[in-house]
């Protein structure tokens, strides 16, 4: 067996790949499910915190800033482990799926809150004043005038962050979520061959590449002429 053949046999073993393809596909579905949930809940929670912060009530804002800084500072894996192994001692036993979802949601919430907040504060004061001077309430000015502009500004950093954090679904393998990496790892142990990992990598590319492209498309589409 030449080196090249050995390489192919190790990472592109067709027999092993065929055998574990269904597992990887199942893992892909779990990853999609987890990723979609994280994106929705993380962005909604982040936007909600940013809106709450824009009201400008100091005690609330201090709490928001502390929470956000905390979850930006902690490595996502630490949060996952903490929730999965730590919460049961407090009488709650979230499943590995829920633990991973909750952890990544908190992280995406924290980062997206900062991005939304930066977007909101970057809108010139004159936009608020124009809106308020025509009789729009604070909330109406925020929803109709400030937020649409802020969200357009935040799309590039937001898509980057969202993709980066969503890829963290692979961390779920540590607490045995049967997502792509988890399924691939156990296939590797069962088959004594790393080829399933290649399949897993391919699945990630197929999954996240469209997200990257979608992000780019959104950036172009949401731009408006100045």
């Amino acid at each position: 067996m030449s080196n090249w053949e050995r390489f192919l046999d190790t990472f592109f073993n067709a027999r092993v790949m065929a055998r574990y393809l269904p597992d990887i596909l199942y893992g892909t579905l779990i990853t999609i499910e987890l990723a979609a949930l994280v994106i929705v809940s993380g962005l909604v929670a982040g936007l909600a915190l940013a809106l709450l912060r824009s009201v400008g009530f100091r005690p609330v804002n201090l709490l928001i800033v502390f929470t956000v800084d905390l979850f930006r500072a902690l490595p996502p894996l630490v949060i996952i482990v903490f929730i999965y192994f730590g919460l049961p001692t407090a009488g709650l036993s979230p499943s590995s799926f829920v633990s991973t979802w909750l952890s990544l949601t908190l992280v995406l919430m924290a980062f997206s809150e900062e991005i939304f907040w930066a977007g909101i504060t970057s809108i010139p004061k004159g936009q608020w004043e124009a809106a308020r001077s025509t009789g729009l309430s604070y909330g109406q000015a925020l929803i109709n005038v400030v937020l649409p502009q802020a969200i357009r500004l935040t799309i590039p950093p937001l898509t980057n962050r969202t993709i980066a954090i969503t890829k963290g679904t692979a961390l779920g393998s540590v607490v045995a979520v049967s997502e792509i990496l988890g399924m691939a790892s156990s296939a590797v142990s069962n088959s004594y061959n790393p080829s399933p990992l290649t399949l897993g990598a391919a699945a990630y590319v197929i999954l996240f590449f469209p997200m990257v492209v979608l992000g780019r498309w959104l950036e172009t589409r949401m731009r408006w002429k100045r």
């Binding site: 010139p124 936009q127 025509t134 408006w224």
Partner: peptide
């Protein structure tokens, strides 16, 4: 405020 129109130096139109 509906009864009080205001025009600003920097227009402040919604882009």
């Amino acid at each position: 405020r509906q009864r009080i129109g205001m025009v600003f130096q920097s227009f402040n139109l919604y882009p």
